[in-house]
Design a protein around this nucleic acid. Structure first.
Lengths: 190, 190
DNA sequence: AAAAACTGTTGCCTTTTGGCAACAAAAAAT
DNA sequence: ATTTTTTGTTGCCAAAAGGCAACAGTTTTT
């Protein structure tokens, strides 16, 4: 179980972790299991943990004043689930994160993560690379959002995230793209 | 001139830079002046440099197949201008970055930046903080983009970026928000 | 096995935004 | 000082997407 995250860290570094570092990592993360629909984070809470998904699927969303859910992030295996803003600034989150399927993740608090990063530079390098990659992905998503119509956005999404198409229903994907499920259905039919 | 970036780095660290580190920083960045409308980066080029803006304003945009510009980022003093994707992956950029006003920036290549970061941990910490802050800002912008209508997006933009309202005309801001200037004008009149 | 919940599609009407053009005022360039 | 360019607004019409509801098929739950 914890081997998965060791392999994941090693994949983002040239030198593999030492045995001591592996022991540190394993002892710092706790395995958490969520049932489908169970919350990892509810709006109004301060986000205290980051979770690395071993198995399953999750979603992060906000709910507007009309009760409509707006999905910002979808997660499957090897994704890190958190609300960074709440975690860093210690403010109540405006987001919810819950399990779309039964899900297993390795969870760590921010304080422990910071300690771990002090002790394991490979972890720091890994997160630097993830930040870089996420920054690039965000940038592309933003470009798509302001310069493409709904049909183009769906096409790009399908190209870039075929795995999400298989794991999530169309109304979830529609929300992630900022459109309604009936609009998405019509777009697919064109 | 270079003092500004020294102060900026120090602001993001607890301990100030040593004299040796300051000398290293100063000798690694070159001052570059751009006239209004002059490119920092043109689409199709690999982005070789990052620029820290000392004075002026810039914008980053893509141009669609109909020749319409879509603005992704606006920059003023203390912002870092670059196309990270092109820079990291060495691919031709799909974006343009140009000066909206006469602009002065301190410029460094990626290779030199990586060397400098090896030598100056404070720089690494600064960029980690910037990545964190940018990630949070991106997240908020994305949330706004998919869950708010144009009027709400403009209101949030005006609250969060009053300085941009003063430096950029409404058609630039409209494009940044993903709407047309006539729509923005109507929204403002409501 | 049956009932309930979920998913995806489609019809019809409304709302939001886009497209285009014209205009006036302000700012910039000459 | 004059001309040119830029900016912001507004009218009118078109297009894209939303809202709502209903339906059929599939999946999940009991």
């Amino acid at each position: 179980m914890h081997q998965i995250i060791i392999q994941y860290i090693n994949k983002h570094n040239i030198e593999p972790l030492t045995k001591e570092e592996e022991v540190l990592v394993v002892s710092s993360f706790q395995l958490k299991k969520l049932r489908k629909k169970q919350y990892f984070l509810q709006e109004g809470e301060v986000c205290k943990y980051t979770g690395f998904i071993i198995k399953g699927a999750m979603r992060q969303y906000s709910v507007d004043e009309n009760g409509i859910e707006h999905i910002l992030h979808l997660y499957t295996e090897n994704y890190w689930a958190t609300d960074r803003e709440s975690s860093v600034m210690l403010t109540p989150s405006r987001y919810n994160i819950d399990a779309w399927e039964d899900t297993e993740l390795l969870v760590i608090s921010r304080a422990e993560m910071l300690e771990l990063m002090e002790k394991i530079p490979a972890l720091v390098r890994m997160f630097q690379k993830l930040d870089e990659r996420n920054s690039i992905a965000s940038h592309r998503r933003l470009n798509s959002s302001i310069s493409s119509n709904a049909k183009e956005r769906y096409r790009e999404f399908a190209e870039n995230h075929p795995q999400f198409i298989q794991r999530f229903p169309l109304h979830i994907i529609a929300s992630y793209l900022g459109i309604t499920k009936s609009t998405l259905s019509r777009i697919r039919a064109q």
